[in-house]
Protein backbone atom coordinates (compact mmCIF):
# COMPACT_ATOMS: atom_id res chain seq x y z
CA UNK A 1 0.00 0.00 0.00
CA UNK A 2 2.69 2.47 1.03
CA UNK A 3 4.74 1.46 -1.95
CA UNK A 4 1.83 1.88 -4.30
CA UNK A 5 1.21 5.36 -2.94
CA UNK A 6 4.85 6.29 -3.28
CA UNK A 7 5.06 5.48 -6.94
CA UNK A 8 1.73 7.06 -7.57
CA UNK A 9 2.73 10.32 -5.94
CA UNK A 10 6.01 10.32 -7.83
CA UNK A 11 4.00 10.02 -11.02
CA UNK A 12 1.71 12.84 -9.96
CA UNK A 13 4.59 15.19 -9.27
CA UNK A 14 6.39 14.20 -12.45
CA UNK A 15 3.26 14.73 -14.48
CA UNK A 16 2.79 18.14 -12.90
CA UNK A 17 6.37 19.16 -13.62
CA UNK A 18 5.60 20.21 -17.17
CA UNK A 19 4.04 23.54 -18.12
CA UNK A 20 2.01 22.16 -21.02
CA UNK A 21 0.52 19.50 -18.82
CA UNK A 22 -0.30 22.00 -16.11
CA UNK A 23 -1.97 24.18 -18.71
CA UNK A 24 -3.99 21.20 -19.92
CA UNK A 25 -5.24 20.57 -16.38
CA UNK A 26 -6.18 24.18 -15.85
CA UNK A 27 -8.01 24.20 -19.14
CA UNK A 28 -9.89 21.07 -18.23
CA UNK A 29 -10.73 22.64 -14.93
CA UNK A 30 -12.49 25.46 -16.72
CA UNK A 31 -14.10 23.15 -19.21
CA UNK A 32 -14.28 19.45 -18.55
CA UNK A 33 -14.97 16.96 -21.29
CA UNK A 34 -13.01 18.65 -24.06
CA UNK A 35 -12.00 16.43 -26.93
CA UNK A 36 -8.36 15.70 -27.65
CA UNK A 37 -8.30 17.92 -30.71
CA UNK A 38 -10.01 20.77 -28.88
CA UNK A 39 -7.36 20.43 -26.20
CA UNK A 40 -4.52 20.39 -28.70
CA UNK A 41 -5.60 23.53 -30.53
CA UNK A 42 -4.43 26.38 -28.27
CA UNK A 43 -1.20 24.64 -27.41
CA UNK A 44 0.09 24.56 -30.98
CA UNK A 45 0.68 20.91 -30.24
CA UNK A 46 0.53 18.25 -32.87
CA UNK A 47 -1.87 15.50 -31.96
CA UNK A 48 0.81 12.89 -31.24
CA UNK A 49 2.53 15.29 -28.86
CA UNK A 50 -0.75 16.00 -27.14
CA UNK A 51 -1.49 12.28 -26.89
CA UNK A 52 1.83 11.77 -25.15
CA UNK A 53 1.05 14.45 -22.59
CA UNK A 54 -2.38 12.95 -22.04
CA UNK A 55 -0.83 9.51 -21.53
CA UNK A 56 1.41 10.90 -18.81
CA UNK A 57 -1.50 12.65 -17.12
CA UNK A 58 -3.60 9.54 -17.41
CA UNK A 59 -0.89 7.26 -15.97
CA UNK A 60 -0.66 9.63 -13.03
CA UNK A 61 -4.41 9.36 -12.59
CA UNK A 62 -4.91 13.07 -13.14
CA UNK A 63 -7.33 12.66 -16.04
CA UNK A 64 -9.68 10.08 -17.40
CA UNK A 65 -10.59 9.62 -21.04
CA UNK A 66 -13.93 8.48 -22.35
CA UNK A 67 -14.55 7.38 -25.88
CA UNK A 68 -17.83 8.11 -27.52
CA UNK A 69 -18.00 7.23 -31.19
CA UNK A 70 -14.92 8.73 -32.78
CA UNK A 71 -14.39 11.38 -30.16
CA UNK A 72 -12.36 10.99 -27.01
CA UNK A 73 -13.35 13.40 -24.27
CA UNK A 74 -11.00 14.18 -21.42
CA UNK A 75 -12.01 14.73 -17.80
CA UNK A 76 -10.14 15.76 -14.70
CA UNK A 77 -9.67 13.43 -11.77
CA UNK A 78 -8.93 15.09 -8.46
CA UNK A 79 -7.67 12.29 -6.19
CA UNK A 80 -3.95 12.41 -6.97
CA UNK A 81 -3.84 16.19 -6.90
CA UNK A 82 -5.37 16.07 -3.48
CA UNK A 83 -2.59 13.75 -2.36
CA UNK A 84 0.01 16.16 -3.72
CA UNK A 85 -1.62 19.01 -1.84
CA UNK A 86 -1.67 16.87 1.30
CA UNK A 87 2.07 16.40 0.95
CA UNK A 88 2.55 20.14 0.87
CA UNK A 89 0.25 20.75 3.79
CA UNK A 90 1.87 18.07 5.91
CA UNK A 91 5.33 19.59 5.51
CA UNK A 92 4.06 23.09 5.91
CA UNK A 93 2.75 22.08 9.34
CA UNK A 94 5.82 20.09 10.20
CA UNK A 95 8.26 22.88 9.43
CA UNK A 96 6.17 25.72 10.78
CA UNK A 97 6.08 24.17 14.23
CA UNK A 98 9.69 22.98 14.14
CA UNK A 99 10.96 26.39 13.10
CA UNK A 100 8.89 28.08 15.79
CA UNK A 101 10.63 25.87 18.30
CA UNK A 102 14.02 26.50 16.72
CA UNK A 103 13.45 30.25 16.93
CA UNK A 104 12.37 29.99 20.54
CA UNK A 105 15.47 27.98 21.35
CA UNK A 106 18.01 30.34 19.81
CA UNK A 107 16.23 33.46 20.98
CA UNK A 108 15.69 32.34 24.54
CA UNK A 109 18.98 33.44 26.07
CA UNK A 110 18.96 36.74 24.26
CA UNK A 111 22.48 36.46 22.88
CA UNK A 112 22.52 38.58 19.71
Amino acid sequence: MAKYQASRMDRTFSALADPTRRAILLRLKRKSGLSVSELARPFSQKLPGMMKHLDVLSDAGLITRAKSGRTVSVHLAVGPMREAMEWLKRYERFWTVSIDRLAALVEEDGER
Binding site: T96, L102, V106
Partner: peptide, 21 residues
Protein backbone atom coordinates in the same frame (compact mmCIF):
# COMPACT_ATOMS: atom_id res chain seq x y z
CA UNK B 1 11.30 23.15 -9.40
CA UNK B 2 8.38 21.11 -8.22
CA UNK B 3 5.77 21.93 -5.65
CA UNK B 4 7.56 23.11 -2.60
CA UNK B 5 6.96 24.37 0.87
CA UNK B 6 8.73 27.66 1.54
CA UNK B 7 8.86 29.28 4.94
CA UNK B 8 10.66 32.54 5.71
CA UNK B 9 11.23 33.44 9.31
CA UNK B 10 13.12 36.26 11.00
CA UNK B 11 14.89 35.15 14.14
CA UNK B 12 16.43 37.34 16.81
CA UNK B 13 19.72 35.47 16.97
CA UNK B 14 22.77 35.64 14.73
CA UNK B 15 23.31 33.14 11.87
CA UNK B 16 26.08 31.37 13.79
CA UNK B 17 23.66 30.50 16.54
CA UNK B 18 20.89 29.40 14.21
CA UNK B 19 23.36 27.30 12.25
CA UNK B 20 24.49 25.60 15.45
CA UNK B 21 20.89 24.74 16.27
Amino acid sequence: SLPSVTIVRRIKAPPAKVYAA
